[in-house]
C-alpha cells in the first residue's frame, strides 16, 4: 500500500472526486451521493456494486457524459465539469455497449480515433496497425464491424480506447455478456496494460473480476462508498469469515451445540442443507478441536471443506443482502 503521502502528491493522483453527487431529474434519491474518491497513477481501481449502485453514473461523470448535480471531479488535474473538452484528451473509454462505428471497417475505427485525438494521418495509420497486431485483430483489419464476435468487438473497443495513450482507461462492466474465454482474454489484456503502467478504473458487479484484477476496490451501493481498500484487506477486515463446512451422518444438532459450547473462536454455527457451517477467523486454531469433538459425539464425518472469504461475503456483511446479478 502506498503511504498517505501518495494521496496528496498531485502527480500521483489521476482521479479525484470531492463530494461528487448526481441526482437525476425526477428522482428522489441521488444516483451518486457525496462521493470522495482518489485513484492513483498506475493502479487498477474497481467500483464494485450491484446494478443501480451508481457505478456507471460515477464513470459517466468522470468521462464528461453525465453532468454532476454538485461536487467536483478532476481527471489528471483537469476539472471535468469546467473543461470537458480538455479532460477528454486524458481519458479512454470502453463502454458497456458496442459503440464501434459501423460505417467504418476495423482498421478505420482505430485510424479515425487517432485522427480525432490529433494524430497525423501517418501516425494514426501506424498506431492503428500496431493495435491490430497487439490485440490479434490484424486478420480482420478490413472486416465489417458487424462481422465481429462479442469478444473481438470488446478487444477492438479496448484497443481504440488506449490508442491515444490516455492517462486513465475507463471500462464499464467490461466482461458483462462475454463468454468465459473472452473474459479471460480481456483480463489478460488488462493485466498487460497494468504492467505497462496504465491506470485503469473499472466498474463491475462480478466479485471474481474485482478480486482478480483490482489493486483497490470501492464497494458502493446507493451511490455511497461502503468500504474502500485492497481486495485482501477488505476480506480480512470487513467481518468476513472463513466457513468450515462439516458434512456428517448422525446427530448434527448435538455436534453444533457441542462445538458452539466447547470450541473457542467460532463466530457462527448453523446447519445448512445437512452440513454444519462454522464461521471462523482462524481455521488452524479450531479444525483439530472440531474433528475430535465429532468423534466424541458419535457423528460420522463424511467431508470437511474450507470456504475462503469472498467479496460476496464482504458485501453481504456490509449491506445485509447479496450482490444481485
Amino acid at each position: 500500500m502506498s503511504s498517505a503521502g501518495a494521496d496528496t502528491d498531485p502527480a500521483n493522483i489521476v482521479i479525484r472526486t470531492e463530494q461528487l453527487t448526481k441526482v437525476y431529474p425526477g428522482m428522489d434519491v441521488p444516483a451518486v451521493d457525496h462521493l470522495d474518491l482518489v485513484v492513483r497513477r498506475g493502479e487498477i481501481f474497481g467500483l464494485l456494486g450491484p446494478n443501480g449502485a451508481g457505478k456507471t453514473t460515477t464513470a459517466g461523470m468522470l468521462t464528461t457524459r453525465v453532468i454532476p448535480t454538485s461536487g467536483a471531479a478532476f481527471v489528471g488535474g483537469v476539472d471535468v465539469v469546467a473543461h470537458p473538452a480538455l479532460a477528454k484528451q486524458l481519458i479512454g473509454v470502453v463502454p458497456q455497449q458496442n459503440t464501434l462505428d459501423r460505417s467504418l471497417n476495423v482498421r478505420e475505427n482505430l485510424y479515425f480515433h487517432g485522427r480525432f485525438f490529433g494524430m497525423s494521418a501517418a501516425v494514426a495509420r501506424a498506431a492503428a496497425d500496431d493495435m491490430l497486431e497487439r490485440f490479434h485483430l490484424a486478420r480482420w483489419a478490413e472486416a465489417n464491424i458487424m462481422a465481429l464476435s462479442g469478444g473481438m468487438a470488446q478487444r477492438l473497443m479496448t484497443a481504440r480506447a488506449i490508442l491515444h495513450r490516455p492517462a486513465i482507461l475507463f471500462l464499464d462492466e467490461p466482461t458483462a455478456g462475454l463468454d468465459p474465454q473472452s473474459r479471460l482474454a480481456l483480463w489478460e489484456i488488462l493485466g498487460e496494460l497494468h504492467s505497462a503502467g496504465q491506470t485503469i478504473l473499472l466498474t463491475t458487479h462480478y466479485m471474481e473480476e474485482a478480486d482478480q484484477l483490482c489493486d483497490r476496490l470501492a464497494i458502493i451501493d446507493h451511490g455511497r462508498v461502503l468500504a474502500l481498500d485492497t481486495p485482501a484487506r477488505l476480506k480480512d477486515t470487513i467481518g468476513a469469515e472463513t466457513i468450515i463446512s462439516v458434512a456428517a451422518d448422525g446427530d448434527l444438532e448435538a455436534l453444533r451445540t457441542a462445538v458452539a459450547a466447547d470450541v473457542s473462536g467460532i463466530e457462527s454455527a448453523t446447519i445448512v442443507d445437512g452440513a454444519l457451517k462454522l464461521g471462523v477467523h482462524d481455521v488452524g486454531g479450531v479444525l483439530a478441536d472440531v474433528v475430535s469433538l465429532a468423534t466424541r459425539t458419535d457423528v460420522r464425518l463424511r467431508d470437511i471443506s474450507i470456504e475462503e472469504p469472498t467479496l460476496e461475503t464482504v458485501f453481504i456483511g456490509l449491506t445485509g443482502r447479496e450482490l444481485r446479478d
Binding site: T64, K88, V93, T99, L100
Partner: peptide, 8 residues
C-alpha cells in the same frame, strides 16, 4: 459515442 468523446 466515440465521436462525442473526441477532445472537442
Amino acid at each position: 459515442e466515440d465521436r462525442v468523446l473526441a477532445p472537442l
